[in-house]
Measured scan of single mutants.
Amino acid sequence: MDVFMKGLSKAKEGVVAAAEKTKQGVAEAAGKTKEGVLYVGSKTKEGVVHGVATVAEKTKEQVTNVGGAVVTGVTAVAQKTVEGAGSIAAATGFVKKDQLGKNEEGAPQEGILEDMPVDPDNEAYEMPSEEGYQDYEPEA
């Protein structure tokens, strides 16, 4: 019985440690998101679009440190934060509304985080759909 109880105690310690790591990862992701939003706020009209992409990228980098179902929630929060940063930029006159959601080359930025393969159960990952990809044929 002692062996059984000791095993359960060790398992509990492992769960607590994993929860603490997840909590730490979420806190880091939130900190990076805040950094990115402050970065966007300090940019001029020309830099705002690039700044919004930076927020998304920093958040995406930190999301990889967070495991399990938390990833889905962090990704949703990050996307809403990026959308909010863009709205703030438009409201303050840093950028025109028609410039939001495009990178410096004018290509749409939507789907940055949505296409990231995420499995809350950590069982399997699927690649994003290939609808947006084109076949590449090298020139002879």
Rank of each mutant, 00 (worst) to 15 (best):
H50Y: 08
Q62T: 09
G67A: 13
G51Q: 10
D121M: 14
D135R: 08
K80H: 06
Q79P: 00
Q24M: 06
E35N: 07
V49A: 15
G7Y: 02
A27R: 13
Q24S: 07
T81E: 01
N65A: 02
A17T: 03
D135H: 02
G36K: 13
A89D: 06
G93R: 02
E28A: 09
V71L: 04
E20W: 11
Q134F: 05
A91K: 05
G41Q: 06
A140R: 07
A69S: 10
A91L: 06
E110V: 12
I88Y: 01
V48A: 13
P117H: 09
G93D: 02
T92E: 05
E83A: 08
D121F: 10
D98A: 08
K12E: 01
H50C: 08
V3I: 06
M1I: 15
P128L: 05
K58A: 14
A17D: 02
A78N: 01
M127D: 05
V71S: 12
K12F: 10
A90P: 00
D135A: 02
G73R: 07
Y136W: 08
D119H: 15
V95D: 02
K10A: 06
L8D: 06
E104V: 15
G25S: 10
K21Y: 14
K12A: 01
E35T: 12
H50I: 11
V95A: 15
V82A: 02
K80T: 03
F94H: 04
T81M: 12
S87N: 04
A140Y: 14
Q134M: 08
M5N: 06
A27F: 14
K34Q: 04
G106S: 08
T72F: 06
K32L: 03
L113Q: 07
A107P: 15
E139W: 10
K32E: 07
A27Q: 09
K6R: 11
Q99K: 07
A30Q: 03
G14I: 13
P128K: 08
V49N: 02
V48N: 01
S87L: 06
F4N: 01
K21F: 10
A19H: 11
V16D: 11
V3F: 03
E105Q: 10
G68R: 15
G51N: 07
T33M: 10
A85R: 11
D135T: 05
A90D: 02
A56V: 12
V16T: 14
V15A: 08
N103A: 05
M1Q: 00
Q99R: 05
A29L: 06
K21G: 00
V3Y: 14
D115R: 12
E57I: 13
V82K: 04
E137I: 06
T75K: 14
E61L: 10
S9T: 07
V77C: 11
Q134E: 01
T54L: 05
G93Y: 04
A56S: 10
A27L: 11
D115Q: 12
E130W: 11
E57L: 08
E28F: 06
T54E: 01
G25L: 10
V48P: 01
A78S: 13
D98E: 09
L8C: 11
A85C: 13
D98Q: 07
S87A: 12
E57F: 12
E83V: 07
A89Q: 06
E35Y: 12
V71P: 04
G86S: 13
E131T: 10
E83M: 07
A91M: 12
K34V: 03
Q62W: 06
T22P: 00
G47P: 04
K102P: 01
Q24P: 01
